[in-house]
Nucleic acid binder design. Structure first.
Lengths: 274, 274
DNA sequence: GCACCCGTGAAGATCCTGTGAACAGCAGGC
DNA sequence: GCCTGCTGTTCACAGGATCTTCACGGGTGC
């Protein structure tokens, strides 16, 4: 195995099932296909699933007992990217529909063939990856900035910004979607890999850190713009633009003081949207 | 409670199947869910499928005979965005795996419950929309206006209207339903996400703010029209038009004064129908 | 002419973001 | 094992931006 970036192409799936015969066969097939498969006979805490950075989860809810529905629901909500496939014994139409509406991606009935199980997981993953970006290794340029995924670092000239990993990933995501306004939830989902908890301010804090480091190395550019009530947008712009030219008539009433950059306060915002 | 997008795209699916009973029930359910469903008893040329702008296709390959595999393959290749679901009689594991690997997203076995069929299509579509850049990122044009969901903002030329989030969502909703008169309650329901309290004037206030900003950037057009006792309608019209051409006979009575824009008062209303 | 509806402006409440700092987790070095 | 530096997370506060609400008056339909 080799090191890979944050954007790893290895397919990692987990199986939660007590039918060891089925799981063993599945495991063999998965190995042939080059997938990483981990198995468990009981519920795995959602936190751990997050840490495993899974692409798919095949689960028999029967092993969860009463906790099955809440568990599935929690998983689906926390990890919307995860290919969540159920494979279980008899079930009613209502149960299947409930599961699918909850966020389960596919529902198979046992006995099911391992090959079909893999094919279905694959189909879900393919569907999911469609919208996704291709291999990311090409450096991006923006303003004075050069963002190099191969180094997990951004540079101004030859000076690195000394970004930490999360900072880099956030910057890279924003820069990839240059010009687009990204909602906080989307950002969190894509950088952290799971759903943002209500009230989490991490994205804001990291944006602040990024701005700080960006400004240190590239003071005359503004890169990250706030969109009130929505999220952030990446777009390199020469700083100091206050867009006066837009005002039809400045109408210098009385308080016509320049209002320019007072001391160290810097205008990060363009507030295109509120 | 949080803000939500107001964009509710219609889901369009097609069914290719000869089992008219099944299709009829399906069709009923789809209607209830607010989906558009079109039916066909034989193969539909891929070109036509493209033109239909479908979100999903439910198909029984049995009606295609020998052409089934190539047909499925062509569809999957031409329309990777389409949720392609098979629902057919008995099949072998090998057939199912082949189908899934070809690009079929889900494979059900008849007899299958219509509700489950819809739930599965929905599940595929949901998965698909996740990785994807917003479905509704296509900008709308109206008069001098360009409405860009990717920026949560509307522009005239390159000048943004500087709409806040709510203002934008309201404008976008109205523009999506261009030409339709929308009741206040409906508008509130879709933009705010919950039912409007009796006597709430928020919609009116936001329409006013919108008109104000629209007029600032695009003074020679009227976009939002009031329908007394009902609600509002979006339709870009060059300003100053009083719709004389609609009256059977202009019959220039006496009040033929230009009634043009007196000072700052502007006519927002067209009052086509009370 | 009379109810009712809508446009308008403003004020207060509410929500959102920037900011600084404290806290927790982890890895490496001693 | 213990200390230390680096990261990432969480919290509380303050200043603004935005949203809601209200009252008033003119407009509209009957």
């Amino acid at each position: 195995m080799r090191l890979r970036g944050a954007y790893n192409p290895v397919i990692r799936i987990a199986v939660i099932d007590t039918d060891s015969g089925f799981v063993t066969v599945l495991s063999k097939r998965a190995e042939v296909a080059g997938w990483q498969l981990s198995r468990s006979a009981g519920p795995v805490p959602p936190r751990d699933l997050v840490a495993m950075k899974l692409n798919g989860l095949l689960i028999d809810p029967a092993v969860l007992g009463d906790e099955a529905w809440p568990y599935l629901e929690r998983i689906a909500a926390m990890l919307p990217e995860l290919a969540l496939v159920v494979c279980t014994g008899r079930s009613t139409v209502a149960q299947r529909v409930r599961g699918l509406r909850l966020g389960v991606d596919d529902w198979m009935t046992k006995p099911c063939h391992p090959e079909e199980a893999l094919a279905r997981i694959e189909a879900v993953a393919r569907r999911h990856n469609h919208g996704r970006r291709e291999v990311e290794s090409a450096p991006l340029s923006a303003g004075e900035l050069e963002i190099r995924p191969d180094r997990f670092q951004a540079f101004v000239g030859s000076e690195p910004l000394e970004l930490t990993r999360r900072e880099f990933e956030l910057l890279y995501l924003l820069a990839e979607e240059r010009g687009q306004v990204l909602e906080r939830e989307k950002i969190y989902q894509r950088v952290w890999g799971y759903a943002m908890a209500h009230g989490d301010r991490s994205v804001d804090v990291f944006v602040r850190k990024l701005r700080h480091k960006l400004e240190k190395r590239s003071p005359s550019w503004a890169y990250i713009h706030t969109h009130f009530g929505i999220g952030y947008r990446f777009e390199p712009e020469p700083a100091g633009i206050v867009k006066e030219e837009l005002r039809p008539a400045p109408a210098p009433t009385k308080t016509s003081e320049p209002r320019a950059n007072s001391s160290s306060q810097v205008v990060h915002k363009t507030f295109t949207a509120g």
